[in-house]
Design a protein around this nucleic acid. Structure first.
Length: 671
DNA sequence: GTTCCTCGAGTTCT
DNA sequence: CTCGAGGAAC
């Protein structure tokens, strides 16, 4: 009996590890459940055999639906970012200008360390704790009342303040966080009990708040600092500094390192001091928040898009980390381009675990003298994509191996080639399986034929099993092709086949995009379709015909001519036609030149509340507007969504380009 | 000839 | 989002 229990636990731990940690399960979920059920039954019959590290004692994942949505009475705004002192001074300059304070009007600032935790809104009625919600997207958060109630530093009843009445309603805002030492201790305990390890204090705090069982939350070392008041009734506050004193009097914890400063040079000194003292702090800090102190001045400055103009977050530089480069693998793209990729010992940078990073090309590696087994510096800059900065030469032991580009393709073993003028190597084998997989992925992608039910995995499977040798073969797949493939039920097969059949009728520009002609993406494809709406016409076009099209130059023209001149490509087009894929549009595309947005150029950043990126693009182009990817002097509007990417936003501010949120865009369109 | 703008291709993780 | 490079505008 004991032996079987031990055996089950060993198996469950092993499979769990494979599933969650290695991401390489070797049994199905159903088989896992069977083992778990058997163990549960044995433990139920023999409670004396239950141990705390048994897999049955682990708390299950929390369904997100368990938390009710709460609409914030006043939106919880995000903050504009400044990444260096220059941007900080620029912000100060704007504040002074807008307040007409070039000369005389004094401006005070409140500076607060920006703790890396979770923003929270906590409501009190008649001095009693009422409820709490996460920030969410700023408009709507999740109700975490039961869990917040367990946080010791959050009062359940407000203290009386001598000279002021208790507010009828007050919504206190602040940050729930975990101290670094507490987080490390928690992770040790999690490791000892076989629980899930958290990547950083912020994730630990978030995970703790998302527990369905608030008794678990109660056992977690969460803390709270308050820093703002949202809605308030019955009390008037006049400044940020005033607010902080008031919050402290009500019984809230307020970060003792917050200061009020009258001189902007002192603000800059404060930021610099905290940046260098960052690692000495008991909690993770990712910047400093600077607010104009007086509320009347805040009101005068107002809010643009989602950001108040009276506050800014000075962000500390992205964190770097060092780790070991274990191997360099090669990726073959759909164009045949071969890119080296770094396999890293997983390392946490800026809140995520990084295990891979691109190394671009041979030059990048050789130029930096990056070797296998080197300790390397990895950085996540303002962007999300990690980057190997370079090796730590001092940490070399002498066993590190220099790396060179091999002479053959990792997928098909054919020799690879490099144009002496270019940095990249290419596999030029037309039947290279890796390229075919990537071409199929591209063919089915949203930007091209948009076939639902086929992704990376299916593309690889079809090619590996020899079910297809080109994209036209997709349309010849039958249920019989799938019968040998374990794990594909009839429903899934039907889904895939329906998806393929449903995508036979896409517009010609999508098909052209899908063909993957070099330097022809969705934009050039649309341009071509405006002149050639039947593929045969495009195939007969001459070099000078194409060159005459505005937006297509000699290079692109030649690439297109060469593509259609190549016999296998012509054969593919004919095969596509035979299997029933549409290769013509019904009529030439007419570009709307009239419309509310005619002649205006838009750039999108962040995610909009109700529209997807595609829908927003559609909406704008229907009205005669253009959407481009980069902010420039020609950009008329920046459409700002939630969590906008830094660079577009910053650039737009520098250029003084007007910003719109989704509502403003709709208003402009007139819907 | 030079500069600016835009497009294509590839990038990581949750 | 960023890079490199093609293409248009100056």
């Amino acid at each position: 009996m004991q032996d079987r229990v031990n055996e089950l636990r060993r198996l469950l731990h092993e499979h769990n590890h494979r599933y969650h940690v290695l991401d390489d399960p070797i049994i199905s979920d159903a088989e896992y459940d069977t083992l778990m059920t058997e163990l549960r039954e044995l433990e139920a019959e023999h409670p004396e055999l239950v141990t705390t590290d048994s897999p049955t004692q682990r708390v299950g994942a929390t369904p997100t639906t368990a938390f009710a949505k709460v609409r914030h009475k006043e939106p919880m705004l995000s903050l504009a970012n400044a990444f260096d002192v220059g941007e900080l001074r620029a912000w100060y300059g704007r504040v002074r200008k807008l307040l007409g304070a070039e000369g005389s009007v004094p401006i005070s600032f409140v500076v607060e360390p920006k703790i890396d935790g979770l923003a929270m809104a906590i409501t009190y009625r008649a001095g009693q704790f009422q409820g709490a919600a996460t920030r969410g997207d700023g408009m709507t958060g999740e109700d975490v009342t039961a869990n917040i109630r367990t946080v010791g530093s959050i009062p359940l009843a407000l203290r009386l303040v001598d000279d002021r009445p208790v507010p009828r309603v007050i919504e206190v805002r602040g940050e729930v966080y975990m101290r670094t030492a507490d987080f490390e201790h928690l992770n040790e305990m999690q490791a000892a009990t076989g629980g899930k390890l958290f990547a950083n204090p912020r994730n630990a705090a978030a995970g703790s708040l998302r527990q369905l069982d608030s008794r678990i939350t109660a056992g977690r070392p969460l803390r709270f600092f308050s820093y703002a008041v949202g809605l308030i009734e019955g009390v008037i506050l006049r400044s940020q500094w005033d607010t902080l004193q008031y919050l402290r009097a009500l019984g809230f914890a307020v970060n003792p390192d917050i200061r009020r400063l009258d001189d902007f040079e002192a603000v800059i000194d404060y930021c610099a001091a905290w940046m260098s003292r960052r690692s000495e702090l008991p909690y993770e800090v990712d910047g400093v928040v600077i607010k104009v102190d007086r509320f009347d001045q805040q009101a005068e400055l107002g809010v643009v898009a989602h950001d108040p103009r009276w506050a800014i977050a000075f962000k500390f530089p992205a964190r770097e980390a060092t780790t070991t480069l274990r191997a360099i693998t090669l990726n073959v793209g759909r164009t045949g381009r071969i890119n080296p990729n770094a396999e890293l010992d997983p390392v946490v940078i800026g809140g995520v675990t990084v295990a891979h990073a691109t190394l671009h090309n041979e030059e990048y590696i050789v130029g930096r003298d990056i070797r296998i087994d080197d300790r390397v510096t990895v950085k996540r800059a303002g962007d999300v994509i990690p980057k190997v900065v370079g090796p730590l030469i001092a940490a070399r032991t002498g066993t590190e191996q220099p790396w060179h580009m091999p002479s053959t393709c990792p997928s098909c073993a054919e020799p690879i080639q490099r144009d002496p003028d270019e940095a990249d190597y290419y596999c030029v084998n037309a039947r290279c399986p890796a390229q075919l997989v990537r071409r199929v992925e591209h063919w089915v992608s949203k930007a091209a034929l948009d076939i639902v039910g086929i992704g990376e995995e299916q593309a690889r499977l079809f090619v590996e099993k020899g079910l297809i040798t080109d994209v036209a073969d997709l349309y010849l797949l039958t249920p019989e092709h799938f019968t040998e493939q374990a794990g594909y039920g009839t429903k899934k097969v039907a889904n895939i086949l329906n998806g393929i059949a449903a995508a036979k009728d896409r517009p010609l520009e999508r098909l052209l995009t899908g063909l993957g002609i070099r330097s022809v993406g969705s934009s050039v494809a649309e341009l071509l379709v405006q002149h050639y709406y039947v593929i045969e016409a495009l195939m007969m076009a001459t070099d000078s015909d194409l060159n005459a099209i505005m937006g297509i130059g000699p290079h692109t023209a030649t690439t297109i001519i060469e593509f259609f001149g190549h016999e296998p490509n012509r054969a593919l087009i004919h095969k596509l036609q035979r299997v029933g894929v549409r290769t013509a549009n019904a009529a030439p595309v007419v570009v709307p030149t009239a419309g509310a947005l005619a002649g205006k150029t838009f750039v999108l950043t962040g995610s909009l509340p109700t529209l997807t990126r595609e829908q927003a693009t559609e909406l704008i182009s229907q009205q005669g507007g253009t959407v481009t990817g980069t902010v420039s002097k020609k950009t008329d509007y920046l459409v700002v969504g939630d969590s906008p990417g830094g660079s577009k936003y910053t650039k737009a501010q520098q250029l003084g380009i007007p910003q719109l949120d989704e509502a403003a865009l709709r208003q402009l369109v007139g819907t």
